[in-house]
Nucleic acid binder design. Sequence first.
DNA 1: CGTATTTGACCACA
DNA 2: TGTGGTCAAATACG
Length: 310
Amino acid sequence: MAKTSTLNSMNTSHEKAVQAILYGQSCAKRLKLQLDHPMADGRSVSNYDLAKSIVHCFSSAISIFSDKPKSEDNLFSDLSSRDSSSSSPPPPPPLPQRSHSKKRKNNNTNSSENWRHDSPDPNYYDGFLWRKYGQKTIKQSKHQRSYYRCSYNIDHACGARKHEQKIKDNPPVYRTTYFGHHTCNINHNQDAGLTTVGDSVNDLENSRMIWFGEDLDQEKESHTSGLSVSVKHEEGSIKEETMDQYRHRGITSHDKDCQNVIKENHQPSPSGSYTPPSSSGSEIDMFDSDLLVEDLDLWDRYDMYDFGLR
DNA sequence: CGTATTTGACCACA
DNA sequence: TGTGGTCAAATACG
């Protein structure tokens, strides 16, 4: 429906993929330059953000090149209420979980189901700490659904919740559906620079990072059947890698104080100043640094590949 | 021993 | 009335 009209207003998929790759290349070159000259001034973007952007650009390109239209695997199911709406009011805060009764919330309404994320990794780290409060066998699915709420549910009266359910066996795909929003204002992503989904309140920018510039209407047409598992798998491995970095730094997702540790270990910059260990610069070396995009306007130009780095 | 997870029961909604 | 969401006691874990 809106697919064609949206596509008309955008470049073709091929062009978008090319743009993604080119932009990733630019980021890689920029990263190389920054690594070559770590003491140079004028670094508006951290190395890690650059690396993150590179990964997503290529993931985006792969996704575009994949045979299926991008499904909601790494996107949100209810984008219309969130899309580009700095003007639209944030969703109303969820009701406190601790009502006197076991009242069921209206989770089935589109307005309360904020977004979903599919991942091949059941331990997918989205930057927030969650506490499991239930597990249920779902009639429609052979897999059980796990219920989580924000670990700061009590401390900060945070009403964010999520459901996690395995929706596909081979390859495994785990769908996480998020409800409500974080009022705890604790998003480890900001410090970790993780390429994950974020708070539904003030992480609209974060959420953009996995839109990949695809038209959103297209998302609504394709559903769970069209998972770009290969792409997601790559992302999952990357996230695991990122988590390993945390673990190496003595931070685990189960550490309730980890956000404090992170904040202490990192600069307060939202984009994060943490530079991951450069495992190998070999790939970067293939780029010619004289092609490096110095003009930051290009970042704006490729804003659709902005994954929440700014 | 404190905290997180599990699990059966309870409850509301369709 | 069936299903799914939540509670809270029991259990597991570090």
